Computed example of a mutant assay.
Amino acid sequence: MQKKVSIVGFGNVGRALAAYFHNSGIAVQHIFLRDGAEVPKGFDFSFRYLSEVKDNSDVDLIIVCVGDRQINEVIEQLPSEITVAYTSGSIGLKDLQRKENIGVFYPLQTFSGNPVQDMRTVPILLESNSDEVLSCLRAFGEKLFDRVETADSDTRGELHIAAVFVNNFTNHLYYLAEEYTRKEGIDFQLLLPLIKETAAKLNHTSPYDAQTGPARRGDDIVLSKHISRLEGIQKELYELFSTSIKKTYEKKL
């Protein structure tokens, strides 16, 4: 297991991993910030913050947590003799210029600046063209996370698409609901128990079986009432989702 780690990039992913590693007894040697970037307020870990990524002596693993567009450029500057892993779900190994001592350490989770409730449950997806690198990443990951699996670039890309549906699109629907309730003078907080229960059901029920609502029942009267009160993108999405749900369950209506 690698005991000394450096992290390049200190956005939401970099901060979450750095804090979790530190709290788990992993020695985080350096945090590399882009020029002009500042340490976020309230982040009080006494890491060594640097701006020059070439200064990476005395580490076993460098984890790159930068945006997809910067991955190739950053990795090219890192020492070739040190194992490097990047955290993207969309960038494949074939897309990189570097071919040796390189791997993927992809945490399948949303990071938005707030602490993840239980980092240990975050699935970690690994890939490398080297058995040795893959073995090192697996040993490192399994000490810290409950589920560590290999996933090639195509699989990660497919999972990333699915993740956009269940997280990014769903969160945008929350936003639209919040906008609607604000407009109507309703407290959005009233919906939080429903949101929690909807997610909790998936621990023991498939999404197909968990579906409820007027579209699932084929209740066109209620659907028409709802649609008549909406406008713009909210109306379009309501109609689109209702059509999709009705088609999904049309044989059972």
Score class of each variant (00 low, 15 high):
I124M: 06
P40H: 04
V66F: 03
A85Q: 04
E231M: 02
R69M: 08
G14I: 01
L230T: 04
H226L: 08
M119K: 04
Y249E: 01
A215N: 09
G92E: 05
N56Q: 12
F47L: 06
L126A: 00
R138L: 09
Y20V: 10
N168M: 10
A199C: 13
G232A: 15
I186T: 08
Y249S: 02
A151N: 06
D187N: 14
S80G: 06
Q70F: 07
I31T: 03
L223A: 08
V74F: 06
E81N: 10
Y175T: 14
V104Y: 00
T248M: 13
F45V: 11
E52I: 09
L61K: 00
E127Q: 09
Q189I: 11
N168G: 09
S6I: 09
E38H: 06
R48L: 13
G11W: 01
V164L: 11
Y208E: 13
D209Y: 08
E100C: 01
P214I: 14
C136L: 15
A16M: 00
A139M: 13
T248E: 14
L159P: 08
Q211N: 07
A162R: 02
L33G: 04
V28M: 06
I91Q: 03
Q2T: 12
R138C: 01
F32M: 02
N72W: 02
F10P: 00
I195C: 05
E149Q: 10
K183Y: 13
R69I: 08
T150S: 14
G113H: 09
K252L: 15
R120K: 14
R147Y: 15
R138D: 08
E142N: 08
I63G: 00
E38T: 12
P115H: 09
A27K: 08
D220T: 11
E132F: 09
Q77C: 12
R15Y: 06
D219P: 08
T83Q: 03
L17C: 07
E127H: 07
E236D: 15
K247E: 15
S80Q: 13
N168I: 12
T170R: 02
G185K: 10
V39F: 02
G92T: 08
Q117H: 09
R34Y: 07
N114R: 08
I221C: 04
T198K: 04
V84E: 01
G92Y: 04
R217Y: 14
N171M: 12
D95G: 03
N167W: 12
N12A: 12
L194C: 07
A215Q: 08
L237H: 01
S51K: 10
Y86G: 00
Q2C: 14
G25K: 06
G9H: 03
L134K: 11
S80P: 09
V222H: 01
V59L: 04
R15C: 14
D60W: 02
E149R: 03
K201M: 14
N167E: 11
T205M: 15
